[in-house]
């Protein structure tokens, strides 16, 4: 995942980069790994690459947070790699989305969810509904769910 180009503020995503590698390695994967993708029903494939992480760190980290942060890193890289969105900033919970991304005077509110195992499509439906109900920003909206055991990325516009 090439973060340097998906964010103007590298430091903003630096903290979650490590988690994406840890979440993937915890699921038994090694870099690079093929990943399945579904974006509004359009299927695709790509490879995820990351710097190998020291797994002993997992002993002192919250497991759910590693999954959530890891999913954020994967989703931000996905939004950049597929449509060129660039990270602007993290949003407070009350905005109803996790991140604001931008490109050429367009804005995207991105809602992200991560899970170690499970059905990503059911979760995507929930996330899309949350975006519609809670995000009042005058921006395009995208929900992304990352499953680490497959690994698989599902994305849907809301």
């Amino acid at each position: 995942m090439i973060f340097a180009r998906c964010t103007r503020s590298f430091g903003a995503t630096q903290l979650i980069m490590q988690s994406s590698g840890l979440a993937l390695q915890r699921a038994g994967h090694a870099s690079p790994i093929p990943v399945g993708m579904d974006h509004d029903g359009r299927e695709n494939k790509a490879d995820i690459m990351w710097l190998s992480q020291d797994m002993t760190v997992l002993k002192v980290l919250d497991s759910n947070r590693v999954t959530e942060d890891g999913a954020e890193a994967v989703a931000l890289a996905y939004a950049n790699a597929t449509e060129g969105w660039v990270v602007k900033r993290r949003l407070q919970q009350r905005e109803g989305a996790d991140w604001l991304l931008g490109k050429e005077r367009r804005w995207l509110a991105l809602e992200i969810s991560g899970t170690a195992v499970g059905d990503p499509f059911a979760r995507l439906r929930v996330k899309k509904q949350q975006l519609i109900a809670n995000c009042s920003l005058d921006a395009e909206r995208l929900a992304v769910v990352v499953v680490f055991d497959a690994p698989f990325i599902v994305a849907g516009t809301a």
């Binding site: 103007r8 503020s9 590298f10 430091g11 903003a12 995503t13 903290l15 900033r89 949003l91 407070q92």
Partner: peptide
Amino acid sequence: EDELDTLVSIAIRRAEVL
């Protein structure tokens, strides 16, 4: 603005975790 975006992103995460 970019530097402040970085700082606010990190600070929001920390505040929400705490």
